[in-house]
Amino acid sequence: MVVGDGAPIPLASPDLSSPSLSAVSSLVEAARRRLHILAGRGLGWHLHSSLTALPILAVLYAYWVPRGRVEGVDRQVILSKGHASLGFYTLLEEMGVLEEGSVEELFAKPGSPLQAHPEAGRTPLTIVSNGSLGQALSVSNGLVIGSRLKGRRVEVAVVLGDGELDEGQVWEAAATAAAMRLWEVVAIVDRNRVQHTGETEAIKPKEPLEDRWRSFGWKAVTVGGRVEEIAGALDSRAGDRPTAIIVEAVDA
């Protein structure tokens, strides 16, 4: 594999047919083991954040998106908390989107398609670059608004960190989604209760988190971090308002 030419990575042929939830769980387990191995070899960057984001990303990419394809619904995923990249990349490797060994070989090398924070045009399955917190909910809204104007239905799931909710722009965007009744937007909050310097509730409390989203005009639900619960929350979305799914991390 060539590093540094800036070209998108050559993909293995991914199997994106809709797998069962038990297959998604196996993906999460495999990716989790892989993350620990990588951490043991010095690639443990934002390990906790990657571990807690894993089941969310696995459900979205390996269940929700393929299922949409079966149902004829275009579904997009945006990882807003881009520092969970190792979790994302490891998952892509386990899904066969990236060739085995890609993460260890390519992560965070100059010019590599696997930058520390995913970049559009280089990183597989990345439609917008991230790394700066608080921006992707607005982008998700825009994607839905634009698609509506084109007469197309696109559903967008955006994965936010709980620390990221400190950013004011998240709430600007939450107000926009509610005002425009963007029911196609799902915000999934990785509620791992830690942010960069320590515990979220000690730094800037996020609770009552469900109530915050509700008070902005969203539907909100809190679930545990098992794939069945996350998938269940996505499947039971209904109505004409955007939904926040708060995923309480299973202690990894």
Partner: peptide, 21 residues
Amino acid sequence: GISEQDLIGTAAGIALAGLRP
């Protein structure tokens, strides 16, 4: 609304959808 950061981000998403914001 009075929210310029959201304004730019939303425009970015609309561009991603293939329109001309």
